[in-house]
Simulated scan of single mutants.
Amino acid sequence: MKENQHCCGCNLNDERLEKVKGISVEYKNVEGALIPVMHEVQDLYGYLPEEALQVVSKELNVPMSEIYGVATFYSLFTLEQKGKHVIKVCMGTACYVKGAQAIIEKLNKELGIEVGKTTKDGEFTLEAARCLGSCGLAPVMMIDDIVYGKVTPNDIPKILEEYK
């Protein structure tokens, strides 16, 4: 670990932490400020790193336990850095019935990760979604903003190759 690095690998002197402080100060006296501040922090980093949340906690005078409670309650917040490409597999009823679990299992094998995790190289994060709104194309998965319909486990290697 480098001198100015934290355990997560981020730079403690990171200019983004100064931005987090500025955002927090801007909202300091605004009622209900925590969620908008957390959204801005996540927009800045792509996730909610502990160091940034500590700055928010200090500046807004909100305990870390409350911040973590909000971060874990709302599914739009994430405490883990996501990969360059986010893969979402629909697990809604139509997709599940048509084989979404087999898609997940193939992705687990191909990527070497479980749902909710990111590959070691930081390329892919695998997520399960409740519904992606494309039931007629079941089973469906998305990579970033691209929807793949009527996916079979055999399609997975070719689809992943497009992103490597």
Rank of each mutant, 00 (worst) to 15 (best):
E50F: 14
E50Q: 13
E50M: 14
E51P: 11
A52R: 03
A52I: 07
A52W: 06
L53N: 14
L53R: 05
Q54F: 07
Q54L: 10
Q54P: 01
V55I: 15
V55G: 07
V56G: 05
S57L: 00
S57G: 04
S57A: 12
S57C: 02
S57I: 00
K58P: 01
K58Q: 12
K58C: 03
K58L: 05
K58V: 02
E59V: 12
E59A: 05
E59Q: 13
E59H: 03
L60S: 07
N61S: 13
N61Q: 14
N61F: 02
V62W: 02
P63C: 00
P63E: 07
M64G: 04
M64K: 06
M64T: 05
S65Y: 01
S65P: 04
S65H: 06
S65M: 09
E66Q: 04
E66P: 00
E66H: 03
I67C: 02
I67Y: 00
Y68R: 09
Y68K: 07
G69K: 04
G69V: 03
G69L: 05
G69M: 03
V70C: 00
V70H: 01
A71T: 05
A71L: 04
A71W: 00
A71P: 14
T72I: 10
T72M: 11
T72R: 15
T72Q: 13
F73K: 15
F73A: 13
S75D: 15
S75E: 15
L76G: 10
F77H: 04
F77K: 02
F77V: 03
T78Q: 05
T78P: 09
T78W: 07
L79R: 11
L79T: 10
E80W: 13
E80G: 11
Q81T: 06
Q81F: 10
Q81V: 09
K82T: 13
K82Y: 09
K82W: 09
G83E: 04
G83K: 05
G83C: 03
G83P: 01
H85T: 11
H85L: 07
V86K: 07
V86W: 06
I87K: 13
K88C: 07
K88D: 10
K88F: 12
V89P: 07
V89L: 11
V89K: 12
C90V: 05
C90P: 02
M91A: 08
M91W: 04
G92D: 15
G92I: 12
G92V: 10
T93M: 14
T93E: 10
T93I: 06
T93N: 12
T93W: 01
A94Q: 12
A94S: 15
C95S: 14
C95V: 11
Y96N: 15
V97R: 09
V97Q: 12
V97T: 14
V97E: 12
K98G: 08
K98W: 03
K98N: 15
G99Q: 01
G99K: 03
A100D: 08
A100Y: 03
A100G: 11
Q101V: 15
A102G: 11
